[in-house]
């Protein structure tokens, strides 16, 4: 980043619920430091004031789900020196990617009184499917500490400390007791990337896979174990078909149960 001049930060929304952008506003204690470190140039959820590009860092939330999204993400990419996608929608297509497994026209006919007003793509896909991305930050929603870590890393030209290993490693570091081993609760932790602070296992719930597939996930072996725990095949399929349903490894595993 240029010395003596604050880097310009932009936050963009595509097809999404806004929750990940909100994580930025949720930084609370660190928000003033963030505002002092960057010039918030475009962030409609926080301010109507807009500063023209190009931008040093763009945070992109949401998936590509409409023809307009396809054009707009290319414009955002052209204006951004570094483009960081945030959240399951931007990194995997989000919950709305459930449409990818069905015929979207049938949904539109069934749901809308005037289907001809609806202009949508047949699929919901990640930003990385359309433009080059400098870093993908996982989560539904993202974890604010990881967001600050990624921003700190980019502002200081270093590698972000965002491990791609399993949720289990985070649970064990924190001393959280394994819910699958100690209570027989099916948990996606062994195939899911760490980062949430083991929110669900801490509350005696299995991991829902919000942070998407870990590096080299062995979903087939875990599904086999779920079967042995008595989980019906349809529920196993549903476990993989949530916020990261279109992440390739989860998609492939859920399709084994079609």
């Amino acid at each position: 980043m240029a010395i003596g001049k604050k880097p310009k930060l932009a936050v963009w929304k595509f097809s999404s619920c806004d929750g990940c952008q909100l994580s930025l506003l949720d930084c609370e204690d660190e928000l003033l430091q963030l505002a002092a470190s960057v010039e918030i140039a475009y962030f409609l959820e926080a301010t109507r004031a807009q500063i023209r590009g190009p931008y040093d860092i763009s945070l992109v939330e949401g998936s590509i789900a409409t023809p307009e999204d396809v054009e707009r993400i290319c414009q955002v990419r052209r204006q951004s020196k570094k483009l960081i996608t945030i959240g399951a929608c931007a990194t995997a297509g989000g919950i709305q990617a459930l449409r990818n497994f069905k015929d979207v026209d049938q949904f539109i006919q069934a749901v809308y009184a005037h289907p001809h007003y609806i202009d949508t793509l047949a699929t919901s896909t990640s930003i990385g499917n359309h433009v080059s991305v400098d870093f993908e930050l996982r989560g539904c929603p993202i974890d604010k500490h990881q967001l600050l870590e990624v921003l700190s890393a980019f502002l200081n030209s270093r590698k972000p400390n965002v491990p791609r290993y399993s949720q289990c490693i985070e649970c064990k570091q924190a001393g959280t007791v394994c819910v699958m081993v100690a209570q027989g609760i099916p948990c996606l932790g062994p195939v899911t990337q760490a980062g949430c602070g083991n929110l669900c296992p801490r509350c005696r719930r299995g991991c829902y896979g919000c942070f998407g597939p870990k590096e080299t996930p062995n979903t087939a072996s875990l599904s086999h174990w779920f079967e042995q725990l008595g989980m019906p095949p349809r529920e196993i399929q549903h476990a993989y078909r949530s916020f990261n349903a279109n992440a390739p490894e989860f998609r492939k595993e859920s399709e084994r149960y079609d």
């Binding site: 660190e30 430091q33 890393a153 400390n161 290993y165 399993s166 490693i169 195939v191 080299t216």
Partner: peptide
């Protein structure tokens, strides 16, 4: 290898496994 989840649980519960990684971090301001 077909069954192993490579999740790392065995190493973290093992009372003798000692491997660690280092993370160097900066704050936003550097």
């Amino acid at each position: 290898g077909q069954r192993c989840l490579n999740c790392g649980n065995c190493t973290l519960v093992c009372p003798t496994c000692f491997c660690t990684t280092m993370e160097d971090v900066t704050d936003l301001t550097g």
